[in-house]
Amino acid sequence: MTDMTDATRVTAAATRPALSGRVKAALTLFVLFALMPPLASALNDPFYVLIGTRILAYAIAALALDLILGFGAMVSFGHAAYLGLGTYAVAILSGFGINDLLVQILAATAMSAVFAAVTGAISLRTRGVYFIMITLAFGQMAFFFFISLSAYGGDDGVALASRSTLLGMEVLKTDFGLYYTTLVMLIGLFFLCHRITKSRFGRVLTGIRENPTRMEAIGFAPFRYQLTAFVISGCITAMAGVVLANQAQFVSPAFMSWHKSGELIVMVVLGGPGTLAGPIAGAVAALLLEEWLGALSEHWKLFFGLFLVLMVLFSPNGITGLLKKLGFGEKQK
């Protein structure tokens, strides 16, 4: 009522130009992704397309993890479970003769939603170190569950006879088709997550990250918002799992090992938590580093581990501090 002119001026300022730096960075990445396959075939190395698909799938998972880790300050160390649920959704459905990507995604998200809702509800009763350890333990629980499922090969996993169809079409048969379908998924999910972080819900989630007590003091009970974000994140990660099953044409509990959860966190942190575009780049960086070190030495894990340790020790305030200094992470809108 008072100063309506002021208020409208502020509103105008708050509605920023449509393309923020972050979206621009993501768009640049997407263009590069789109150009990669033609380049690879020009270089006569089509194998890159398959590796590229794997990178895109992990980019989806990193994006999903960033939604809760970067925006919600929930360090989930059990996200590989959702990758695994996605892959097993493909394997289980194919046992029933169902091979359509959309049905697989539907089943994977449904399974993940239930698992995330139950384990998230328990994990979110705690915080800090407890939360990390409990999510890790639940991830392991899923891991052991699938190891003991002898119908799907147990420890050894099971090979998939064919790739999925898309609405009955054999789009994913070729590596190119699978790659571009995954890219479309990644782009769609990026904008979905981007919208979520800018929405009412996203603002509440980031608010809880910044100061949960303050949020309670203005009337928000953090739990339900955190749990919702946790479930959304789990569902999106499961979609990455569906892609991975197609990419590898093989499903095994290895996708759910806690090392995979750790790698997902590495991707998010490398790229910058709370930026969405960053973790996509982080997935690219981490997987390329793995491939590169792997080509140099069979003991690449030694160097990758060393890289992680040094990175944390020699950035003055840790990686999280370094990113903050570079202007990532803490910012939000």
Binding site: T15, I196, K198, S199, R200, T228
Partner: peptide
């Protein structure tokens, strides 16, 4: 606050 799409800043 369970609105996921509209831009809250606007």
């Amino acid at each position: 606050s369970f609105r996921f799409f509209g831009t809250v800043a606007a």
